[in-house]
Design a protein around this nucleic acid. Structure first.
Length: 208
DNA sequence: CGTTGGATTGGCT
DNA sequence: GCCAATCCAACGC
């Protein structure tokens, strides 16, 4: 139904962010609560950030805030923004290089009641359709920064059912003038769980 | 040390 | 569609 429960390994993440980002669509983000409860969602929207990119937190080198981005593939990079929101990324590429994929939206699967309580809404489309909404629904905050998605037990990503290339739409990222070949925002076409529409995200065109 | 604005969201001028 | 909320990293002086 939602595909393979095989966990994605270190090698999957040890590639350029622009390659990992579209490949994450259709995979399952999973959090195992210490209570034994499982929270999960099918990834439907991502964005790639390479170190060479002025829009990336890692562009100006390693700092206290972005340190995890340089820590090696498969780590979870969580940052705080706008004075109230958290966003989560999956670190990609080799250790020492600051690259990551921002998880922007998932389709809620397991633990929907718990997500609804955290989000103060029962509307499925408002639970995880945005990077900060996802973090709130999954209970991800500062404490989860640096978690290992490959060797750790708190969070991981399962293989699920990878999206077909023809089902993927690519466009420019928020606030970034992406040129041809640099459309690094990816989402499933015709999916109702993606974040709210914004300019620069055409409904057509396939990546790579 | 002061200023600026952000990989956003929710509520409503 | 527009703007306030609210912290803090990065940058300029």
């Amino acid at each position: 139904m939602t595909g393979s429960r095989r966990r994605l390994g270190r090698r999957f993440f040890a590639r350029p962010a622009a390659e990992v980002a579209p490949d994450l669509l259709g995979r399952l983000l999973v959090r195992e609560m210490s209570s034994g409860r499982r929270l999960s969602g099918r990834i439907v929207e991502t964005e790639a950030y390479e170190q060479s990119d002025p829009a990336s937190h890692s562009y100006r080198g390693r700092t206290e805030r972005n340190g995890v981005m340089f820590g090696g593939p498969g780590l979870l990079y969580v940052y705080f923004t706008y004075g109230m929101h958290f966003c989560m990324n999956v670190v990609t590429g080799p250790e020492g290089v600051g690259s990551a994929v921002l998880l922007r939206a998932v389709e809620p699967l397991d633990g929907i009641d718990l997500m609804a309580r955290r989000r103060s809404t029962r509307d499925l489309r408002l639970l995880c359709s945005g990077p900060a909404r996802m973090c709130q629904a999954f209970g991800v905050a500062r404490r989860q920064n640096g978690l290992d998605l490959v060797a750790g037990s708190e969070m991981h990503i399962e293989a699920g059912i990878p999206a077909q290339e023809t089902d993927i739409a690519a466009g420019s990222r928020v606030g970034v003038r992406d040129g041809v070949g640099r459309d690094w925002r990816f989402r499933l076409r015709h999916d109702e769980f993606v974040s709210r529409a914004r300019p620069g995200m055409p409904a057509t065109r396939t990546p790579r």
